[in-house]
């Protein structure tokens, strides 16, 4: 059984009394020690998927249905007081923008120690030592001094390291990193990616990496799920995805990467990603798809399974149609949780 599995997750927003889905029937599994990359453009639903796993969806956002099974328990069924010890301790989240994810009025040390104390992993007395250890683990030079500094005194790369240290504070089994290097320069990005890979190998973490950069995917992923307009349209081990992409969108994304054939025009995908609530009929990629044909605009394609962990939702590869109603799952439980202040 996988460590974490997401089954038929549908998340969206209540707009004018109507539910507008932004994550549609998303399913994937994550094993211990594995890196799964969720890749997609803005508005594809990749970040919202990550937040749904943490149950950090605030109104008007809502998890409509689905199951998020972690170590045999459906997280969506847990009362908030049982979710709290999971969030941050067993499943940790690293945010994209390290400046906004850290609280500017507390020192880095205060924030790491708070995480430790909230989850009962350290007392006031032992927290400082553990915080130093954590900063050492993420290779922050002079950790003792850095702990006493405020976020604005740190460079972007150091702030991201501090955030990773916070995420690791309670020895999580799953780390979700949402575009952890997007705001960073390329040399710093390389260092952070190396660090994540190293930590993962050493601690046996399951890493869910959300990114839009296929270069990062190629460096980091064991498996990849490509999202488009709320759905996972292709899932594959990383090698075959790059050597033999199945979905026209994946092919288009790969062809859009600059620098591979200098001087030439890129094979751009025409048009733009549709906004939630304005999804076209049938397959959402139809209006932009160079290979569209007669079944595409009728209904969204279902899963075609190639075996070996390769699946795609596209009529080029099979006639499966997406089931009209999402797979059954009991409605999510309890009130929508509020994120911790540091994370807001």
């Amino acid at each position: 059984m996988p460590l974490l599995s997401v089954q038929g997750l549908t998340t969206g927003f209540l707009t004018a009394g109507q539910f507008v889905p932004a994550v549609i029937d998303v399913s994937f599994a994550l094993d211990k020690g594995e890196t799964l990359c969720l890749v997609g453009e803005s508005g594809s639903g990749k970040s919202l998927t990550a937040l749904s796993i943490m149950r950090l969806i605030e109104p008007p956002g809502r998890i409509e249905h689905g199951r998020i099974v972690f170590k045999g328990r459906d997280l969506l069924q847990l009362p908030e007081r049982e979710m709290q010890p999971v969030r941050g301790a067993e499943i940790a989240l690293v945010f994209q923008e390290p400046m906004t994810a850290l609280n500017p009025v507390f020192t880095v040390g205060d924030q790491i120690e708070e995480t430790l104390r909230v989850h009962g992993r350290a007392t006031r007395r032992t927290a400082r030592d553990r915080a130093v250890e954590l900063l050492e683990a993420v290779r922050v030079p002079e950790p003792g001094r850095r702990l006493r500094e405020y976020p604005h005194q740190l460079s972007g790369g150091l702030r991201q390291r501090a955030l990773i240290a916070m995420a690791l504070a309670c020895d999580p089994e799953v780390v979700i990193a949402d575009e952890p290097t997007t705001a960073l320069d390329v040399t710093i990005q390389a260092q952070i990616l190396d660090l994540l890979r190293d930590l993962q190998a050493r601690l046996g973490l399951a890493l869910l990496l959300v990114t839009h950069d296929l270069g990062v995917v190629a460096e980091m992923a064991d498996r990849v799920a490509v999202m488009y307009a709320g759905r996972i349209v292709e899932e594959s081990p990383v090698g075959p995805l790059f050597s033999d992409p199945k979905h026209p969108y994946t092919r288009g994304l790969l062809a859009s990467i600059p620098g591979l054939v200098p001087g030439r025009r890129l094979k751009a995908i025409p048009g733009t990603v549709p906004a939630p609530g304005t999804l076209p009929q049938g397959c959402c990629f139809t209006p932009r798809c160079p290979s569209r044909f007669e079944p595409c605009p009728s209904a969204h394609p279902g899963i075609t399974d190639f075996g070996g962990g390769r699946t795609v939702k596209c009529y080029l590869h099979g006639r499966a149609v997406e089931p009209a109603t999402a797979p059954p799952g009991p409605p999510p439980h309890g009130p929508v949780p509020q994120p911790c202040p540091e994370q807001a």
């Binding site: 453009e41 803005s42 839009h212 950069d213 296929l214 288009g252 994304l253 062809a255 859009s256 990467i257 600059p258 890129l266 094979k267 751009a268 995908i269 025409p270 733009t272 990603v273």
Partner: peptide, 9 residues
């Protein structure tokens, strides 16, 4: 976004 970036390039 990557796909839009290619169009503008």
């Amino acid at each position: 976004d990557v796909s839009v970036q290619a169009q503008v390039v």
